[in-house]
């Protein structure tokens, strides 16, 4: 995979996506979301990535980086 520069804002969003999609309370539901028509989402810090330039900035999320 090509190297993709990760900026702080991107990492924040990826961090959120990784958490909300892969973690959190799991309840077995009646319906599973189809990803066949997925309009584009991530993929986490494992696989990277999405069209970052389209991603909105999460609200009130602080990032520190060096």
């Amino acid at each position: 995979m090509n190297e993709v520069t990760i900026r702080a804002q991107e990492l924040t969003l990826l961090d959120l996506l990784d958490r909300a999609i892969e973690h959190g309370v799991v309840l077995v539901g009646d319906i599973t979301i189809s990803v066949a028509d997925v309009d584009l989402i991530y993929l986490g810090l494992r696989v990277l990535l999405a069209p970052i330039q389209r991603l909105p900035e999460p609200k009130s999320r602080e990032v520190a980086s060096v």
Partner: peptide, 10 residues
């Protein structure tokens, strides 16, 4: 507790 995105019920 945060619930995982995509948890949907009928």
């Amino acid at each position: 507790l945060p619930v995982r995105f995509g948890t949907v019920f009928d």
